[in-house]
Design a protein around this nucleic acid. Structure first.
Lengths: 134, 134
DNA sequence: AATTCAAATGCATATTATTGCATATATGCA
DNA sequence: TGCATATATGCAATAATATGCATTTGAATT
């Protein structure tokens, strides 16, 4: 019961569902999520951690990069039921479609740079981490 | 998207899921929910209101009683998917089984009396509403 | 109209969640 | 070993949520 309510709580947030939708498309690292959703590094990291903690995601390390993906072979049937419903609901959502478009342009360029419309580097001069978005 | 996250948030709470499970069995009034779950009148009322607000429940008035039931003909398919997963998860939960047992003994006796083990009346002397449980 | 009673709600408080900022951790490379 | 870099996290401020108590609402009965 506790696991179920925890799962539902994690899933009851727009940002986290948007990330889940991204991962439905393909494996992502933290900085790609930052770019697509235009959020801070710490926020992106926490969203992925939260999803990971419920057992929804796999984590694969590749050098410095942490690559998260959806754990498709869920042993729990009920989790698949819930995810199916969520994904069905997201199909009719414009935001998630736009996210997938932005995902095509996202690159593994680290957290310091966030491409907006594909152009600029918005890194602060004094700090490399802890962005200033949202 | 907003409707979806709101739905998931409402469902991400143990008490509310337990009530949903009760309603899966049969239509209930506020005071029956109080009895089964041993919670205050205001809490029971608010749980039912929250579920009702997301469109999960029907409300039927019968005299003074407010009878809530699950709205089975959900137009949204995704809601059914999610509910299916939740109910499947609840099957393995001892609490919900116990709730159903207590539901058999629950009566429409108003909010002032809460039968615990089928015996006592715990109404405060000065107040008829706003119980003192939990 | 006044009373009774089931349910709903305003308010205050307590608990929990979110998030930016700064820093820590950990990995690869020179 | 030391530096650069991608991610994680402690802390603090803010926001959201939950809940008890007291009161209100609204329907039924007298």
């Amino acid at each position: 019961m506790r696991k179920l309510t925890k799962l539902l709580k994690v899933l009851s947030d727009e940002s986290r569902l948007r990330v889940l939708n991204l991962l439905q498309e393909r494996e992502c690292c933290v900085c790609e999520v930052m770019q697509v959703m235009e959020i801070s590094q710490s926020k992106a990291s926490r969203i992925l951690s939260a999803l990971y903690d419920t057992g929804l995601l796999n984590l694969r390390r590749e050098g410095r990069w942490a690559l998260y993906s959806i754990d498709t072979d869920q042993t729990k049937n009920y989790v698949n039921d819930i995810l199916t419903g969520i994904m069905r609901a997201l199909e009719s959502s414009p935001v998630t479609k736009e996210d997938l478009e932005r995902l095509k342009k996202a690159e593994r360029i680290g957290p310091a740079c966030v491409t907006r419309g594909g152009t600029g580097c918005l890194a602060s001069k004094t700090s490399t981490a802890g962005g200033t978005l949202r």
